[in-house]
Design a protein around this nucleic acid. Structure first.
Lengths: 200, 200
DNA sequence: CGGAATCTTGAAAGTGTTCAAATCAAGTGG
DNA sequence: CCACTTGATTTGAACACTTTCAAGATTCCG
């Protein structure tokens, strides 16, 4: 169950066998049924989730009651509200399961102990956070530079299977548009050229 | 010159006196004149800049030739293209000075040596990156949730002096709107109520 | 003073949203 | 297996927000 995590870590840093054991022993496996909520506003986030399979999402509630999905947590992703986690403040986000998922849970306190004992584990997180930071800047750049349609096409290019397995309204939310508009974008593509109506 | 950096670090982690000395000796002071370019596309980013005074910005060039500002580096900020830095790939961004600025330059190689020698320094960066990551998510949330006008008001609330010292077209770019539209937003405010025409 | 960059203003054109209704899909219980 | 209910997607018309383009006013700096 932990091989997937260890394999992921090994793409960034090297841990000794002992360190790997310690880490594996520090995380708890958990099966998350579809729609199960792992975090909600008014709670303080005290756990990090490593997604082994399935998918989670992090979202907020807009003033009009609509969900605003800010992040999907697919396989090999860590997901949590880092602001709440680090400051001990109340979260403003929800985290739940899009599909049935399997995760490894790492408690905040345990994480901090691991950081003290295994500097390379903290480096791994430094690299992840740095990457997330850089990706955030690039994401903002996409929002500001291109149209919603380009963003959609880009997303489909990057995550073709996921883009078609996730409910359309969730994808629309993540891309910052209404489900109606995404539907129109999709409609435009499928029927324009002599294209066959679509297979299956 | 380095006190500002050490003071900033001390808000996150504790360094011994010796570590502080080592760090200070590892960074080079540099005065950056207004408009001086520190990084441009086709270069690989190999330095991190800590802003002591003044302000830098990180931006890309849109297909229509307009600048898209993605980030301002104000006092106490670190700025660089982390993706280029870590992967050794060519950057897609520019970094230059909005105003005359003073920075401390940290070379990539030196940074990595410091990380090996001073685990708390790497923790400091882990916390910075984590914070930047969380802030990036919140920023996306602002873009998707509110109107440009709300974003502008929010920005002014957070950085009142900076918002009025930076050229308006740069602020517009950072907020993802045209300078014309920002001008209209500002016009609306100033003249709505019995408000005085504006002082100075 | 002169020139260049910046900011303002207005009309026309986009792009994406809202609202409402119709269609489609999927499960549930009988 | 069908009828029903609920949720998801599609479609269209009216609307709102933001951009584009073009001209004029302003400011800044040598």
């Amino acid at each position: 169950m932990h091989e997937k995590l260890l394999a992921h870590i090994s793409r960034f840093v090297d841990l000794t066998h002992g360190e790997q054991q310690l880490l594996a022993a520090s995380m708890e496996y958990r099966a998350i049924p579809k729609r199960k909520i792992l975090l909600k506003p008014s709670q303080v986030c005290t756990s990090l989730y490593f997604v082994v399979s399935g998918s989670l999402r992090l979202y907020s509630m807009k003033s009009n009651g609509a969900e605003q999905i800010l992040q999907f947590g697919l396989a090999d992703w860590w997901i949590c509200d880092y602001q709440s986690l680090e400051n001990g403040t109340v979260s403003g986000y929800y985290i739940d399961a899009v599909d049935d998922a399997e995760v490894l849970v790492l408690d905040l306190r345990t994480r901090n102990e691991l950081f003290d004992r295994i500097p390379m584990f903290e480096r791994y997180f430094r690299l992840l956070m740095q990457r997330g930071y850089a990706a955030g800047i690039k994401r903002v750049s996409y929002f500001l530079t291109g149209s919603r349609e380009e963003m959609y096409l880009q997303f489909v290019r990057l995550y073709p299977e996921f883009a078609h397995s996730v409910p359309q309204y969730m994808l629309a939310s993540f891309l910052g548009m209404t489900p109606e508009f995404l539907s129109k974008i999709r409609g435009k593509k499928g029927s324009t050229p002599g294209g066959k109506p679509k297979i299956s």
